[in-house]
């Protein structure tokens, strides 16, 4: 379980997060949605101890993120930031392999190799495994980064807008893979999404944020209503249910 208790955050004098409390139980997919600047990425990076905690407490599986040794946390939680840029000339296989670093501190066992192969296969990277990252397209690069986070094999996976640069096929593939590891392996996925229909279809729970506060929290069917969406994003949307799935029409 991820426990966030009374967390506030300021950047210089600008408040980013206001007194956020949130419990994310083990297992399942939680989607974070909300307008730009709502504080979704800040919350994610606080949970993943990328930023020092200013006010409040955060723990994962009971381990407080600010005092637990970094190398231990790396076996429990993996994060993919939205603005990850790879400037090094690494081959796809090497990059994905570094996802295994927390486990063997650099020594790759046969088991590690199997996990790397599996991650490559899952994101259709097997044919690109010996290519340098810089020679890939934006979407292929994004897949390699997600595969690296997958290879880390942690129970908790935080993804900040991982669908960026992905075409429809791979966006669907990624969401299906996440669903698979959440259902099959009991992994906990927290994902920042801007495509509300992806969130509605794949997530078990949606947490909506606005100006540093949690403004709505619930199952997609409860949360995806015209009133709630208006309160979050500030404009009218239609919600239709097709085959039991809430679909948000937000184009008009």
């Amino acid at each position: 379980m991820i426990q966030v208790e009374n967390v506030s955050l300021k950047h210089r004098s600008t408040p980013i997060l206001h007194d956020i409390s949130l419990e994310i139980p083990k297992g399942g997919i939680t989607a974070l949605i909300g307008p730009n600047g709502a504080g979704k990425s800040s919350l994610l990076s606080l949970i993943a101890r990328l930023q020092p905690l200013q006010v409040g407490k955060i723990s994962i599986e009971g381990f407080p993120v600010d005092t637990t040794p970094n190398r231990d946390l790396a076996k429990i939680i993996a994060i993919l930031r939205q603005d990850s840029i790879v400037t090094s000339r690494l081959r796809v296989r090497e990059l994905v392999g570094f996802g295994r670093f927390p486990h063997g501190r650099g020594r790759l066992t046969a088991e590690d190799q199997a996990i790397i192969d599996q991650s490559l296969q899952q994101f259709d990277l097997t044919d690109l495994a010996d290519r340098f990252i810089e020679t890939l397209s934006g979407g292929q690069r994004q897949r390699a980064l997600v595969a690296m986070a997958f290879a880390q094999g942690t129970d908790y996976l935080l993804l900040d807008e991982p669908l960026n640069n992905l075409d429809m096929y791979f966006a669907r593939e990624l969401m299906r893979s996440l669903r698979k590891i959440a259902d099959g392996k009991g992994k906990t996925v927290v994902i920042v999404l801007h495509d509300i229909n992806q969130a509605g279809f794949y997530a078990d729970r949606i947490v909506a944020m606005k100006t540093g506060r949690v403004v709505a929290d619930g199952a997609p069917s409860e949360l995806l209503t015209p009133e709630t969406l208006h309160a979050i994003f500030g404009f009218e949307m239609r919600v239709e249910t097709i085959d039991g799935i809430p679909m948000v029409v937000h184009l008009r």
Partner: peptide, 13 residues
């Protein structure tokens, strides 16, 4: 060389 965030995420001090 992958950056600070990636390093911390992979458990490096």
């Amino acid at each position: 060389a992958l950056g600070r965030d990636a390093s911390i995420g992979l458990g490096i001090d």
